[in-house]
Computed example of a mutant assay.
Amino acid sequence: MTEQTDQQALLQPMPTDWTRALAVVAHPDDLEYGCAAAIADWTDGGREVVYLLATRGEAGIDSIAPDACGPLREAEQRASAAVVGVSEVEFLDYRDGVVEYGLDLRRDIAAAIRRHRPELLITLNHRDTWGGAQGGGFWNTPDHKAVGRATLDAAGDAGNRWIFTELLSEQGLEPWNGVRWVAVAGSNTPTHAADAGPGLERSVKSLLEHKAYIEVLTDQDPEEYVRTFLTGNVRQAAVRFGGRPAVPFEVFPADRIPLV
């Protein structure tokens, strides 16, 4: 199969034989731009999804100082999550814009994995660019890269009792080897997709909850901006998913997640 043909290969349906997922991203709105339509459909089906955010997005609005912006964006994130059936939203309180990949971040995410015991772990594009599997496109932010990469690594850390031993000795968090897949939204090289149709309208409403952020991001009518962006993305993925609007993911199964 040629490289070009491989890039146009059909996307496989996302796994559905799971009950709990943990979504780990850097900022408020990351999931709403990335995969809320899929999450809405999953929670409708009775699955549990928890959100874990590294920051409160306090550096994201130039006209609002961080001490005021953080609580505002946290409130918007909680309201946004509720629209798609997510009631539990946690924040790690790393500083927005300067999140660094490292042991502290890996440990904090591994702790959350042990607490929530997900079978599906969701994160956002951890690579250098958005768009274009062979490079090009737009440069990704340091926070996205750090959190995405740390999430992939923490999937293995969570199952290894000899890494971050303090999680057991001090917090009583037993190792969790139950992560069966890590799904990366916004990947340049997706392998799977979830049907976006059932949850698309709620994904629009969910992103619209980030009102303060969207108002400074664009001069467009907020609903027009959000609907155009989200429907454009899912229609683009439909080409590789039998013509159905889709949320694409790059999926790493458990046998590709090393424990050491």
Rank of each mutant, 00 (worst) to 15 (best):
G159L: 11
T2N: 15
E224V: 15
A238N: 05
I39K: 02
F241G: 01
W18D: 00
R244M: 08
R78M: 03
G159P: 09
D41N: 08
Y101G: 05
A9I: 05
R78L: 02
L11T: 01
G45A: 14
S169F: 14
T231I: 10
T5G: 10
R115F: 04
T165F: 11
D44K: 14
G46V: 06
H144T: 06
A193C: 10
E223V: 03
P245A: 01
D41W: 03
A68Y: 14
A158Q: 04
A146S: 15
D41P: 00
V216A: 13
Q236Y: 15
E58Y: 02
D30G: 10
Q220F: 10
L120T: 04
Y94L: 07
G85L: 02
G57K: 00
D157N: 13
W139T: 12
N125A: 11
Q171W: 12
Q8F: 14
L208Q: 00
E224L: 13
W181G: 05
Y101E: 08
L72V: 05
T129H: 15
A75W: 08
D157K: 03
D157S: 12
G131R: 11
L207E: 03
T43S: 11
L152H: 01
N177T: 15
A254F: 11
L10F: 10
A193K: 04
S206C: 13
V147S: 11
E58G: 07
V226R: 06
